[in-house]
Design a protein around this nucleic acid. Structure first.
Lengths: 190, 190
DNA sequence: GGCTAAGGTGAACCGATACTCATGTTTATC
DNA sequence: GATAAACATGAGTATCGGTTCACCTTAGCC
């Protein structure tokens, strides 16, 4: 593979512009942002857009794949810091706050993805993030800071249900209510 | 007011059928269920549908108003039981489970309402529900079972973020994680 | 039973939006 | 700097869904 000759320079540039414009316009106009608007924002004709992404589902999928990759990298970095001796629970708490804010910023993109059934190429990143999250959970549990039955799925649930359509203050309050259910002190083991 | 003569019998019947069909079709086909599908399911022509509800927003608004009324009645009943001597925290817990399941059943309707900005005539019911919820909170706090800083808004946040797009088991787990943040034992007062 | 206003009908209208394709332009290679 | 393969263009197509309206039907009252 990789037999094909490299993309032409202008094609590379346009592809990047389209991805950026898609994220921008979806955030601005909502999940139903028209392809025409995305094309115009990218400074490109619709036909070009469709050359790079044959379908809107493909385009949105590519945008969430980028998002997921960023998230996964953040989780991995946190797990690495914990391996380096940092406090696991503190890392998790800070990470969760960051990830939730990040999800809120891209909430329209996620809505578009759900609406279209777009998974893009996000799957591998999801797995990497999940693995790293598992490391963090194990470390925090070893410290005795996390309730023993807490799993990666619980954190995905947290991520999936965070109030992304409200302000940061609401999310902080929400986490203040949610996180105790995950910690050892917050919820009795019984 | 109420000066107008009563609705014709067939009009009353059709109105009810339309509301029922709307709920059914939106649940079945998603938030974007076409008006034509709703009309057909109601056994009525589109024109009739538009006679009763001039706009899709009005129709969806009427459906969520019904939903909200049911919820509010449930909250008030619980508050009344607590006034009658029932345990406040237990009532709240059971209530929250019921309300969340109910919200899950009508999740597509709520999505449609959000999408259209339809508030319908739900406002008064929201207020009645809020007032009753306040009574429940006060009672539970008096029992020393609820964290002192918990408000009605916190419960609205819970309701707004419940994972309605997943199975009941996931919601049970989610509540298991969330509720400790509201109780006195679950979260340190410090 | 006949009258009339309230109610019902559904084909047609209209705007929006994802997607196509015939044609023109540019990059990269020799 | 000429050539061919990539790439870009954007007017046009197809479809879909909310809404309208001129005309028909029926309930309810005398």
């Amino acid at each position: 593979m990789d037999r094909a000759r490299p993309m032409r320079a202008d094609a590379v540039r346009n592809r990047a512009r389209i991805l950026s414009a898609a994220r921008e316009q979806i955030t601005l106009l909502g999940p139903d942002a028209p392809m025409d608007a995305i094309a115009e924002a990218a400074g490109v004709a619709v036909g070009t857009l469709y050359r790079h992404f044959p379908t809107k589902t493909d385009l949105v999928g590519a945008v969430i794949a980028e998002h997921t990759a960023r998230m996964a990298a953040d989780v991995e970095a946190a797990a690495d810091r914990v391996d380096g001796g940092a406090g696991a629970l503190a890392e998790i708490t800070a990470l969760v706050h960051r990830v939730v804010e990040s999800a809120a910023a891209d909430r329209a993109v996620k809505a578009a993805a759900r609406e279209l059934g777009a998974t893009g190429g996000a799957r591998p990143y999801e797995e990497r993030g999940g693995t790293a999250m598992g490391r963090l959970i194990a470390a925090a549990r070893a410290d005795g800071d996390l309730h023993p039955d807490v799993t990666v799925e619980d954190f995905l649930l947290l991520l999936a249900t965070a109030p992304t359509d409200q302000g940061p203050a609401v999310r902080r309050r929400w986490l203040e209510l949610f996180l105790p259910g995950l910690t050892a002190r917050g919820r009795p083991t019984a």
